[in-house]
Design a protein around this nucleic acid. Sequence first.
DNA 1: ACGGCCGTAGTAAGCGCTTTCTATGCGCTA
DNA 2: TAGCGCATAGAAAGCGCTTACTACGGCCGT
Lengths: 358, 358
Amino acid sequence: MTVTLADVAARAQVSPATVSRVLNGNYPVAATTRERVLRAVDDLDYVLNGQASALAAATSDLVGILVNDIADPFFGIMAGAAQSQIGGPEGAGAGRAGGEKLAIVCNTGGSPERELTYLTLLQRQRAAAVILTGGAIEDPEHSAAVAAKLGKLADGGARVVLCGRPPLEFPGGGEAVAAALAFDNRGGARRLTEHLLTLGHRRIAYVAGPVERTTTRHRLEGHRDAMEAAGLGRTVVALTVHGPYDRRSGYDATLELLRREPALTAVVAANDTVALGACAALRELGRSIPDDVSVAGFDDLPFSADAMPALTTVRLPLHEAGARAGRLAMGREAAPAGGIATVPADLVVRGSTAAARG
Amino acid sequence: MTVTLADVAARAQVSPATVSRVLNGNYPVAATTRERVLRAVDDLDYVLNGQASALAAATSDLVGILVNDIADPFFGIMAGAAQSQIGGPEGAGAGRAGGEKLAIVCNTGGSPERELTYLTLLQRQRAAAVILTGGAIEDPEHSAAVAAKLGKLADGGARVVLCGRPPLEFPGGGEAVAAALAFDNRGGARRLTEHLLTLGHRRIAYVAGPVERTTTRHRLEGHRDAMEAAGLGRTVVALTVHGPYDRRSGYDATLELLRREPALTAVVAANDTVALGACAALRELGRSIPDDVSVAGFDDLPFSADAMPALTTVRLPLHEAGARAGRLAMGREAAPAGGIATVPADLVVRGSTAAARG
DNA sequence: ACGGCCGTAGTAAGCGCTTTCTATGCGCTA
DNA sequence: TAGCGCATAGAAAGCGCTTACTACGGCCGT
């Protein structure tokens, strides 16, 4: 039915070995022979069988990119940037393009099981590399399972890169991860809250992300650090609400926080999307931003600059980080010293924050 | 080095065939034997070799999802929804979970070459299905190439689904596509412009998407239809600017349009992201929305409701469409009659549009 | 008591490539 | 002219699975 290497060989009157060599270009083949083979490939519309090729060569050109939520630009930007360093060969010929890989984006939806499942699937496909993006779930059991899987993946020759995820703690102490790009969530959050404190805010509410996520915890810790340094440590717990990283969560949480503390003057959100929800809630209650209440986000997603007022937030160089993760996964860039690089998180002050009233 | 089926067989004291059968569960195996095999699998931490398995069984569990821009939630939402119907087996065992596939998202970046390249790559992997999302490029040569590739893919047994992409025109007249879900871009755009006309607007500018894209053309045609029906057909060309689907484009185009027609009272954008850029430009020029100028978008992405003022737009059920495409790709849903289903595009009126002033 | 059938398990032939090893022809040098 | 090395091509052995096809007991019916 489908055209095989042997068919091409027959038509070009050469051995299958020669065809393979022409396609892979890793062995000298006389120009005239090559020509003949190429013509046969063309005539027959031959396409290499990836599985067979991978099986025989014991290599795969799959690179897995795990994301928590593909519909969230936070992940989309990183994944796209990573993929740009990895996938889509330029020459679309029948042979496998040199060194190019096929990046595949796997959407875990934040579920630990799916994360593990995808890791198994990638292991099954003998993936060349795996990039894990975004925060991890902080269940010890799950972390151990993930660490174990990554260890196996690495044993199998896969390069493992963490992007926006804190370095794993390996039980055995062994380091199976090629590199980790850790966002400075804590520092960014601290600077953000300090900014608010400097503006005179004291009753600052915090809409945190889902519990048991490293990202959530780190950002919250940064916030708490700043609050404690200002002697406001005790108010933090009462004025913190957890929820998913979506608009709805920001909306609901803000309503709840306002019930707890009607006089709050600032709301810090776990990320920009959540912040937008918070803005919506405040507007509906007739509170002006930033005159009555300041609002701040995190991530600096593209739409944040377009919110009204434009969102004060913490900028994460998602594109750069994703691209670097991609390069790391391809082995095109040396791993940072110690295997860990911290990605800066810079405060971006815009219109949604202002001096506390009164 | 790595554990193979044979190793498991040896440890369980059975033949490789039996192990395979236990793992695939497609052949009766005595309970005690199965037990023994499973224990061996566990003991050895065995993971099936996907390539070998796929090669031998002549089937693949890869499903490709092609998107133009993974960082754009428009695609992220569809891809995520599609993937939710496809990927991530529930049981993460060593065997291949029944009927479950691995969804892989391929980011073409809107480039025709990469689109073709990914299609070849998927063909090489003998993908079980391919979903193409979003508008197509309107180059006849490229369309023909894509159609040919899809034909081959289909010949090879892959299910091909178009989501948000108009049905292909096959040269041979043959229909190789399992199903096409076409957005009613034209109708939606028409209704949107009609809405503006009803509000009394006459000088309506249009910020279109990139030229040579079906989505761009269809939306523009809907707009033009409405304008022509109102006797304003002649103003359309002069008040239309093309650009990419990003914020920047909306910003720049609006500036340009205002230069051409300072008295315009409404700006219709190719999509919500572009609309946000338009809003930014208008605000900077001190024009109030919607008092001075009405602005409308398209797609109804999540953030559109949060813009200030909330964006009037055309709602596309991206999640539903993506999910349906996923089901179609899995053969879990019957193809619509004629292979083509039109996805409705409903007008959503919010705060960014109001009666024309004066 | 014997043939046949059902339920299990094993044997072995590939799936379509890659790659090592071997063979051949040719132009050199000594 | 014999001997050697180089460039090129072929033969064949897998890669790790799946899946006919075959084999072998035990239980049934008659």
